[in-house]
Write a protein that binds this DNA or RNA. Sequence first.
DNA 1: TGATTTAATTTGAAATTCAAAAAAAATAAT
DNA 2: ATTATTTTTTTTGAATTTCAAATTAAATCA
Lengths: 405, 405
Amino acid sequence: MGKSSRLSHSDVQRESGKQQVMDTIRAAGSIARIDISTATRVSPATVTAITAELIDVGLISEIVPDTPRQDAKRGRPRVALKIRGDAHRIAGIKVSHRVISVVVLDFEGNNIVDHEMPLTQGRMPVDDLCKTIMTALGQACDKAGIDVGTISGMGVGMAGMMDAKRNFVYWSSSLDERNVDFGAHLSRHAPCPIFIDNDANLVAKAEHLFGKGRNVSDFVVITIEHGVGMGIVIDNKIYRGTRGCGAEFGHTKVQLEGALCQCGQRGCLEAYVGDYALLREANITNGGAGHRDLGQLVDAAKGGDQMARSIFDRAGRMFAMGLANVVNIFDPKLIILSGARLSFDYLYSDQVIEEMRRWVVQIDAPPPKVRVHNWGDLMWAKGAAAYAIEEVSALAIRELATSDT
Amino acid sequence: MGKSSRLSHSDVQRESGKQQVMDTIRAAGSIARIDISTATRVSPATVTAITAELIDVGLISEIVPDTPRQDAKRGRPRVALKIRGDAHRIAGIKVSHRVISVVVLDFEGNNIVDHEMPLTQGRMPVDDLCKTIMTALGQACDKAGIDVGTISGMGVGMAGMMDAKRNFVYWSSSLDERNVDFGAHLSRHAPCPIFIDNDANLVAKAEHLFGKGRNVSDFVVITIEHGVGMGIVIDNKIYRGTRGCGAEFGHTKVQLEGALCQCGQRGCLEAYVGDYALLREANITNGGAGHRDLGQLVDAAKGGDQMARSIFDRAGRMFAMGLANVVNIFDPKLIILSGARLSFDYLYSDQVIEEMRRWVVQIDAPPPKVRVHNWGDLMWAKGAAAYAIEEVSALAIRELATSDT
DNA sequence: TGATTTAATTTGAAATTCAAAAAAAATAAT
DNA sequence: ATTATTTTTTTTGAATTTCAAATTAAATCA
């Protein structure tokens, strides 16, 4: 054993010319053949051949120049190509505890419809969850007046540990069972291919395809919701680690024998920056004088309350330390702080980022860029859709090779 | 900018069939064609064609079965292939402060000769270092009675930050100048291709080719010498980060506002586990009663000295915390603790590893394996040679394609 | 000795890619 | 208005790589 692990997959993973061209067009939005050629180092002849085939099957199209003349240059004008939005409809679904969010995107990534469906229970049996997901998708489709059957791929994101390759869920807080072949179950209800992954990875996908990670080959995305998540992109691919649970940034240790975390361990980053951690501190120091929620605490800090401010100060410093560790280990080009909640402002402040930079090993090269991306709640569902778009794209191209001509 | 970064290199990097076959043979040591086929998923027909060519140019050879009968099985017996050791001679050179270590290996990785040359000064001008390196290599060759001109590739490892791809050194403690095109300088003195990289990366290479990382696609190597280094292998490739300084594991922070590190920052792991850190503590607590060296300190701890023991205890706990953070971020299959100095026993103890495991997020899947690899001092030089072997191999195969039939 | 099994090789065809030449579509110059 | 020039795209024919299927080779088993 082991013998086969060394190289066996590199062949499968290596992108065919078609894939490469397709990805380049998607990344660019719109791009002429000659630019595809220079970007991919594939010869113009081949680009012509490939794009002709892709146009033929309807995956991409030429853009007719509406402005008759562009920036005056000689020579045959370049004609740009783009993904055909109407080639496929893709759904992205994010399952969280209280709600299921759905988006339907066209193949270009444009929003067709989005929808939220409240959940009465966070944890449920496998088949219930499948049905619930399909109900949510059905409602979204009704809203847009489209048929569920016209959707050609569906990404599903949820918290927990899973093997994306096999659509297998080791554990998720949304399921009352461990080690479920969730892909197989959901397939029975869904009329299209399904792609399941950890939600942190999906946000990374979303940033890569649609967000601030576009055209960046290596970066890290950090998200804060209830917990602290991290997604890693290396060489344009999601890095998933060996156990498939994604990077557990929230449980990196920032203090020996430190604060108690909900995971049962001590000194986790999450135990300093998570909302429950902040509230815990606030309510202890508050002398039991009634619970405060996070909004109140933020207001208090902004209003100059020393106590509240010191709580956020420490959280910020711990967060900077955790970030610095990531940079010292990974040395990414870019860190994206991706979030839906404005209440985490204090962690995304310039001060925290400055502090992180000071803790990074100093060398001549500039420290990694940090960009804050404040998506709405749809971020997660869009990530799921982004994943599905990539996979459907790959599928379509593989089919191309198999069938006809 | 940016636009071309997305895919441009994937084409260059993707292994040709020949590379794949060559790598598989090297990783296996010896392997039959049919097994190469299954390992690489390349058809038997192609494997036959490729291996025929490789045999033709003398890079590999068939192994004649010395034992006439093997484990009794029917069918045509498989004939194993192996790298031809005499195809090339490769040098590996590690520059440290007090000594230059040299190894010369054959193409299979067998030791032909090793040699150490003391240095009178640790930091020197570029051309001096080039000459010194060539002198050391000359001495090694003399020792073995071989001609320097017969060496077909040379790997050089040194501490510091460098861009391996360009053989460019941003900074090294062995040079009195920054931003040196060291490859260009050394090329003027050397009769063969040169490959330069950070020493931590080279140890990772050594483990991958010759050590405990053989046949493992993703792992992390941690080395402790004066400082704490880390090398990362992802998908059979060295992960170098964007700034090319390798992973700065030694400067990850394990304590907010903690102990002062030689880098000037506070709370670095190195400031707790580095030898100078231990001695600093020992000598403070010693009440100024004469300096003790690390050996003495180790002996004292083993002899039951409470003070000494508590120093190692804390160092061990900090090390475990640092390791746990790497696991929580990276989730590698395997961690190799690679070292030349036995005095670091206390960091590589079962207790420390157990502690680390407890600090890793608990999931169903087993935690990463930890293996201690106690190489001699040659580890570093062998790493340099390993790198050169890989590169010369790639070169030879590229030439194959270029020249003749 | 022939049947069976497994490994390796041969052969012809398919797929992919590219260099070089040609064509297309624009502007600039005369 | 015509020709020259420039740049992009397409066509064409050839080289390379790879594989499926058939064949050959080398062993053991009956």
